[in-house]
Design a protein around this nucleic acid. Structure first.
Lengths: 185, 185
DNA sequence: CTATGTGAATTTATTCACAGCA
DNA sequence: TGCTGTGAATAAATTCACATAG
């Protein structure tokens, strides 16, 4: 996006303005991971991007599986930008016979009961987009299949071995954070 | 959920175990807002719930408007638990003629161009679930309509007056947090 | 005797201000 | 001269340990 603007490097103050921080916050944070910048010039955008990708471990492709191809799952499949972060959705599963076999964006929807056919080669990450009652069962199956990380969109807290990282996004909980900030008028 | 289990009060250690914290973290945090507990007993669940709702300002109903009734918007409408947090989705908007006029969960989908008919009485919060190109325009219209807080599901950073609180949920960014935690094996 | 609430100690994060390099 | 990188100062959050109330 910045390279598209023909820029080669960017200063900490420019980056700061961009994300509503101060320039020294940017510099300090970067400095914890190494010396990415050039004094008097700024940060080489290409290099900075590469460094950050390495730190976040999104420098290699991560195969990702989606479970639940309802409205939410379909929205996720259509979401833009997975590729540019190195994610590749390699498989999708659902329990609805009407959906199994359907092809969405080059991905054939498979029967969720066949989650056991999944192996660690096919995916190291998973996205859960099923109703809350099904969430724990799906999580268990994913763990068995060797998944290492789960993005959970169901409003149910799921229990997994502690080696596995879970990030849960509960829409209602996120919405509930808003009123705190709005003045009661 | 706990009252459903017939419990009247709960100790800080029980709560801690529940959310993977220590008991003194729970107590310290609560103590910043007041003395909610009873020594030797614990926290009265009913009262604790009421206090937290008051702190988060979700003790009164918040009318909420949804913009974008595609897959993501539909998923949000179907999401369980809005009511129990005091949210009431009062209106939905879309730009698709095929959807305008349709009734989903007692809510009639209105033309997004009629967002100007919305007033602050009808909603103080909004959820944006439109494609990224439309996000800023929708945000502008919502601000004009007097909305005070926005939950933004589009992967576009939106600009609003600083009086208005925005929480952005970008699915790809959240997914991108996972690889950092998974061992490279 | 149990479990809260909180001062005090410790650790961590934030902020500043400037030395040092291109 | 311009912007990074970082020690030092300041502020904040975390952790402990225990007095205190039911």
């Amino acid at each position: 996006m910045m390279t598209q603007q023909g820029l080669k490097s960017v200063s900490s103050s420019k980056l700061a303005e961009f994300v509503n921080l101060n320039s020294w916050q940017i510099r300090k944070d970067f400095s914890y991971f190494g010396d990415f910048g050039t004094r008097g010039v700024g940060y080489d955008i290409e290099n900075l991007s590469r460094q950050i990708r390495k730190i976040l471990k999104i420098d290699a492709t991560h195969n990702t599986v989606l479970v639940g191809v309802g409205n939410l799952g379909s929205a996720i499949l259509a979401y833009p930008g997975f590729e540019s972060y190195g994610f590749c959705i390699t498989a999708a599963f659902d329990n609805d016979p009407a959906k199994i076999g359907a092809k969405i964006k080059n991905i054939v929807v498979k029967d969720v009961r066949r989650l056991d056919t999944l192996d660690a080669q096919q995916a190291d990450l998973a996205i859960i987009a099923v109703p809350e009652q099904a969430a724990q069962d799906v999580a268990d199956a994913l763990v068995k299949a060797g998944i290492k990380g789960i993005l959970n969109f169901s409003p149910r807290r799921i229990t997994v071995p502690k080696k596995i990282k879970v990030i849960t996004i509960d829409i209602v909980t996120d919405l509930a954070r808003l009123p705190y900030y709005i003045p009661s008028s």
